[in-house]
Design a protein around this nucleic acid. Sequence first.
DNA 1: CTGGATCCCGAGGGATACTG
DNA 2: CAGTATCCCTCGGGATCCAG
Lengths: 111, 111
Amino acid sequence: MTEKVQVDENGKLKCSIEYTLNKVGGKWKLVILWHVMVDGTKRYNEMRRLLPGITHKMLSQQLKELEQDGLIIRTQYNEMPPKVEYSISEKGLTLKHVLEAMHAWGTEQGG
Amino acid sequence: MTEKVQVDENGKLKCSIEYTLNKVGGKWKLVILWHVMVDGTKRYNEMRRLLPGITHKMLSQQLKELEQDGLIIRTQYNEMPPKVEYSISEKGLTLKHVLEAMHAWGTEQGG
DNA sequence: CTGGATCCCGAGGGATACTG
DNA sequence: CAGTATCCCTCGGGATCCAG
């Protein structure tokens, strides 16, 4: 089978896998998306507990990027103390197959 | 080869997504696997051409890790000049759903 | 042709303190 | 509670040369 090859503005070959990795690659984003998709809405500190080892800096950075890409929804309640909730968006749900496939593979291969 | 894995208090992997990312995360591995799965067997320099921007160091490193994890097969022909071919393994084929899902998402979202 | 070995730099990310 | 700001440093990865 021959796949459709995409070319960027520099004339370099680009494939859809690379596009996906650019959006949700890295160490944290897919894990974050998996949790908010499966477990539902989560608050900031709940996310921290779900991601052992992540720092403030990385968590807020990743969450911000995911929100700017429209993959998660950030809801802020103007209360004291502050309360912010993160949930999966419609667009984020389009990653369902990717996440399920990766989860299935990890479960099978990793035991 | 595989970096530090996060485990919970029972010594089990935190989540399967993380296991998968530990095996095939990073910038190159899934793209490499995609190419050898879809396009078939590839030689070293063919791989370089398929991955604009990758360096010798990174390509040989990633190929070695993928081979050690049993996801690709390295076949060396004792000729002059040297000839080495990389192909997808049975185990590598188990990532088919992951790769297809990511390719589909990138195609839809990226245009 | 297919890599390995080395040197080296800078950005990515950790730790911590601070703020609304 | 939910982040920001800052400092600091490691180490991922680029460039280059070497080897079978």
